[in-house]
Simulated assay, not measured.
Amino acid sequence: MSTPRREIALLVNPTAGRGKGARYASLAAPRLRDAGFDVRLLQGTSAEEAEALARGAVSDGCHALVACGGDGLVHLAVQALAGTDTPLGIIPAGTGNDVARYLNISRTDPLAAADRVVASRRRRMDLARCGDRWFVTVLAAGFDAIVNERANDMTWPRGQMRYNLATLAELRTFRPLHYTLELDGETRTLDAMLVAVGNGPSFGGGLRITEGALLDDGFLDVVIIKAMSRPELIRTYPKLFSGTHTTHPAYEHHRVRRVTVATPGIVGYADGERFGALPLTIECPPLALEVLL
């Protein structure tokens, strides 16, 4: 009797990474088929349709849901996978690829990433949850969120340069924000440049804002960058890429299971996606996601 073939649901964002999504999927799919998997290609015409396709594949009992795209597509896939035993695989094809960075998956070789899926070694990791929505990396809720908002409204240039220009534009007028935070039931009010809530250590292509965050400790890492002058912010911002901002006097770090972040007029971004207007309450269901290593 022949062995039943297992099905991989390959969720693709063809436009990710300026077309890398489509190219990488065309390379990864044959590698998965050669390893004995059936491959079901999922490609929605909108984020809503793609998420519905992902949920359908998980409901049908696929062996794994594999996201071929960037962190935004991983974010979408996680909405279907959180709390289930179906694992997430990743073929990184976006600009940031922070989740792939967390899991040490090659961000330049789609065949090596596909081989990780074929090997099917599993582990569980934490997620962050706000209501019925989930995220994997970091919730940005301050200066970095405002930069995201501006960048999303820009049509030129493409890629990382758009965010660099948005950062420079916002620096001209940005003022510290007044926050109310609730950290595991303890309320604080303060002025700060940003508050970030991390499940993992980085976002935005390696911006290590929540340096030291662990993926399986059941805690969220809340980082506060307290009020500082614009020149000081400009000097400090590059340190976020190396994680050396943690020694700055304006840096404050808390490890909590639940946090509420409130400040007027700010929309939070998580996994690089528009997540919701503050206030937001985030908690950390431990080991809520199965991933393929």
Rank of each mutant, 00 (worst) to 15 (best):
T187F: 05
T189G: 09
L190C: 11
L190Q: 03
D191R: 10
A192K: 01
M193K: 04
L194T: 15
L194A: 10
N199V: 03
S202K: 03
G204W: 05
G204R: 03
G205H: 02
G206L: 04
G206E: 03
L207M: 15
I209F: 03
E211V: 08
G212Y: 02
L214G: 13
L215F: 10
L215N: 09
L215I: 09
D216Y: 06
D216K: 02
L220D: 00
L220E: 02
V223D: 04
V223R: 05
V223E: 07
I225F: 08
A227Y: 03
S229L: 04
R230T: 15
E232T: 14
T236K: 08
Y237W: 14
P238N: 02
L240A: 13
S242V: 08
S242K: 10
G243W: 01
T247V: 13
H248E: 10
E252P: 05
E252V: 12
E252D: 11
H254N: 03
R255T: 07
R257N: 12
V259H: 02
T260E: 09
A262K: 08
P264T: 11
G265M: 07
G265C: 07
V267D: 11
V267H: 10
G268Y: 00
G268N: 07
E273Q: 11
E273N: 02
R274K: 13
